[in-house]
Amino acid sequence: MKLKRIAALVLAGAMTLSLAACGSGTASKSGSGAASGSAKKASSVKVGIVTDVGGVNDGSFNQSAWEGLQKAQKDLGIQAKYLESKTDADYKPNIETFIDGNYDMIICIGYALANALKEEATANPDQKFAIVDDSSLASMKNVTSLIFEASQSSYLVGYAAGLTTKKNNVGFVIGQSTDTMNEFGFGYCSGVLDAGKKAGKKIKIQLANANSFADTAAGKSDANAMITAGADIIFQAAGGTGLGVIDACKEAGIWAIGVDSDQYHIAPKTILTSAMKRVDNAVYAVAKDTVEGKVKGGVEKFSLKDGGVDIAPTTKNLDPDVLKQVKEVKQQILDGKITVPKTRSDFESKYGKGIYTIK
């Protein structure tokens, strides 16, 4: 890889005059670490996205990321491109493709890319990167970690589920059991339990780990098992796998809860609401900072307070009284009156052990 990069630089130097005559050129890197570099002509700025295995049409966070970059392309005039990863083995080659293409910013979508990104960021210290849902590389000066308070939006949809369920039986399907993904679960279960307590009812919560973000069949199977066991609302935080959950809920005539983006359009008569994680806004912000030369390493956090997470704006399927109560608890979170658990220890200290059993 190093020899390849040196060869590319030598070739670029030899072709400088001909490139200038053609009206094109190679964008210069703007350094790393604290905010550095200078503003560039937007049309010369190249920003690329590397998806995880869910793909750009997962109806979830990969798709949201690409929509954010497309908006940046339209608004700012940058060059935008995505590369899909079909398997984990594609992560590193896809990142290297963008490095060799002299991209100013490379955004990795999902914590699954962290290992590949760490290797490439170490080998290319002048290349700027960003990664969604991972803070393990926060000490690297050329990596910006985009972190979301997913428990907050999940609490809101959990609260809605707890007030809406008729059978007092709801479900949650996760794509993979990690600290990042379990944050969705802790928030959702907290919301369900608090709503149940307020309504004076005990609600059963079924949990399943599909162990994939790209297996719709697994998502549908897990959802069908929950439906058979009495669930009438199922929340999924599982990327492309979640589409299978939605399909099962649609066939059974029960409510599904979407994730990351407003998934109402996928099944208008099935999606009760969605837990929004505004990856699109975060990607747009990174692209804008790249144009303006303001990119910096470290952690960028997005929460209810700054609109980084929220309950979906489409509320057609929510009972007006339920929506009113959800808005009330949202304000209590903003006011600091409700602190939503983000870790197992925080969740269990408040609600007890044996409730959240996903492995």
Rank of each mutant, 00 (worst) to 15 (best):
M1L: 13
K2P: 01
K4N: 13
K4E: 10
I6W: 15
A7P: 00
A8W: 00
L11C: 06
L17M: 14
L17I: 04
G23F: 04
G23P: 07
G25V: 15
T26D: 07
S32N: 11
A34D: 08
A39H: 10
S44C: 05
V45T: 06
I49S: 00
V50P: 01
G54W: 00
G55S: 09
N57P: 08
Q63S: 11
S64P: 02
S64C: 06
A65N: 02
E67A: 11
G68Y: 06
K71I: 15
I78M: 05
Y82N: 10
D90R: 00
N102R: 05
I106N: 03
I109H: 03
G110S: 03
Y111E: 00
L117G: 03
N124V: 12
A130E: 00
L137S: 02
L137N: 05
S139L: 06
M140F: 10
V143Y: 02
S145P: 02
S153H: 02
V157L: 14
G158Y: 13
G158E: 12
Y159S: 08
Y159I: 13
G162Q: 04
K166W: 12
K166Y: 08
K167L: 09
K167I: 15
N168H: 14
N169W: 15
N169L: 11
V173I: 11
F184V: 03
F184L: 08
F186R: 08
G187W: 15
V192R: 08
G196H: 00
G196S: 14
K202T: 13
I203W: 10
I203N: 01
I205Q: 09
Q206H: 03
D215W: 02
K220T: 04
I227Y: 09
G230R: 13
I233H: 07
F235Y: 15
A237P: 02
G240Y: 11
G242W: 09
D247R: 03
A248D: 05
E251D: 14
A252T: 10
I254T: 11
W255M: 11
G258L: 12
G258P: 07
V259A: 12
D260P: 01
Q263C: 09
Y264S: 02
H265Y: 04
A267H: 03
K269I: 04
K269N: 03
A287S: 12
K294V: 00
E300F: 15
F302I: 02
S303C: 03
D306W: 03
V309M: 07
D310N: 05
I311Y: 04
K316L: 06
K316D: 15
V322L: 09
K324N: 14
K327I: 05
E328S: 13
E328F: 00
V329M: 04
K330H: 09
Q332C: 05
Q332I: 03
V340F: 01
P341W: 09
T343C: 10
R344C: 00
S349I: 11
Y351W: 15
K353Q: 09
G354S: 03
G354E: 08
T357Y: 10
I358D: 04
K359R: 06
